Computed example of a mutant assay.
Amino acid sequence: MGYDTPEIVQEYLNELPFRVFNYSFNKLRIWILEIGKSNNKKLRFVGPGFKSAFIYYYNKQRSIFFQEIESNEYKITIYTANNIQTFIGNDLESVWNQVSCLKQFTGYQLFGLDHQYVQKLIHELQVSTCSLSDWNNTNLMTLIYKYHLKRYTYAQVNWQQLFDNWLLQESTVIELQLTLCNLYPKNYTLKDREYRAWESFLRHVGCVGITPFDKKQSKASLI
């Protein structure tokens, strides 16, 4: 199928807005497993869905510390060889105050929230989505375009034209393949990778119901 080819694997990985990564903090290696956003300025906008983990000793046993942020609580689950223990708090510090180790660090540090790349990902989440009511917000739309589409498409494409024309038409449905072809020079070939980037871009500006073709249909998509 080609999925064992490094170039193809990398191409698909490049589409992901987030990939699990780890970094060294003191003697710990903290894994960032998932990113979540919120409007909480005190937490620098991290929010529900954020998950991280590391390995350390708890009660003299090598253990996995799994941390997660939910809607109204902060949770640490410690997995040892023969036991699972969970701590829940109202904020990062209160939950870590219940754990009898690593007192020299703050909960913010142990969750991995002070890492520069984590902050970058959270910022990108803040600006990488919008809705139809934001289509006239040029700055926001440009940020989303740069994040989802710019590096995969023709540099001179007038992507704003798609939204300008769409807002003017009576129907809320467009035929995507034809619409995109009209944005590019004559005889320009829209590659599959580029088309998927367009789909990602459109989904993140509020478009729903992107219907792809299958092998028995003509190459068309409706939104």
Rank of each mutant, 00 (worst) to 15 (best):
C101I: 15
L33Q: 05
I69S: 06
L92E: 00
L183Q: 00
I88Y: 07
L92S: 00
L92A: 00
T106F: 01
Y23T: 12
I8N: 06
N39L: 10
L28V: 01
N40H: 08
K37D: 11
T106C: 05
W96A: 08
L180P: 04
K41A: 13
H123G: 09
F163M: 15
F163Y: 11
F25R: 09
S200T: 05
V157P: 03
K146V: 04
W96C: 14
I35N: 07
Q126N: 14
N158L: 10
W96P: 06
N40V: 12
G209T: 08
T179A: 15
K186H: 06
D134T: 11
Q67F: 06
K37V: 13
F213D: 10
R44H: 04
I88K: 13
H148A: 05
Y108I: 13
F45D: 09
Y188N: 04
T189E: 11
V118L: 02
N59Y: 05
Y108T: 13
L178Q: 10
S52N: 05
Q156C: 09
Q10G: 05
T189F: 02
N97E: 13
K42P: 03
P48K: 07
R193S: 14
A197K: 03
G36T: 01
K120S: 14
Y152G: 08
E93N: 07
N82V: 01
T106E: 00
L202A: 10
Y57G: 03
K60M: 07
T86H: 07
Q104S: 11
T179N: 03
H204E: 03
V118H: 01
L113H: 03
P6H: 01
Y147F: 14
G209Q: 08
E34D: 13
K41N: 07
R19W: 02
L176R: 01
G2K: 06
N40R: 10
Q217D: 04
Y188M: 05
K216N: 11
L110M: 05
